[in-house]
Amino acid sequence: MSSPELDVRYVAHLARIDLSDAEITQFQSQLGRVLEYVEQLKQVDVSAVEPTAHANAVYNVFRADEPLPSLEKSAALANAPRQANGLITVTKVVE
C-alpha cells in the first residue's frame, strides 16, 4: 500500500536529501503503511481539545543579559569540514 498523498521524491527534496530510485520505492511503500496506521487518529474527537507542545511546559525563560564564557574560536572551528582565515567556508551560493 502507498499513500496517494505522499510524494517521497518531492518531500525528500524539501528535506534536502538525495534518494536512489530504489529507496524512493521502498520508502513510498513503508511510509504509506505508517500513514495508513496513523489514520486511526481521525477516530478521536479533538474538536474541544487544546494541543500539547511540551508535557511540562514553562514560559518566558529569561536570564540576565550578561556575557558569559562560550566556546573559544579555535574549538568552534575545529569540527568544520572546510575553513579558511579563521572562518567556516560555505559552498558558493551566488554566481
Binding site: 534536502r16 536529501i17 538525495d18 529507496e23 520508502f27 511510509l31
Partner: peptide, 19 residues
C-alpha cells in the same frame, strides 16, 4: 546539502526525516 545528507544518514533516519 542533498549529497551530504544522502551519504551521511542511514535508511531509518532518512525515513523519519521524510515522514
Amino acid at each position: 546539502y542533498k549529497r551530504t545528507r544522502e551519504e551521511g544518514f542511514g535508511s531509518e533516519v532518512k525515513r523519519r526525516i521524510i515522514l
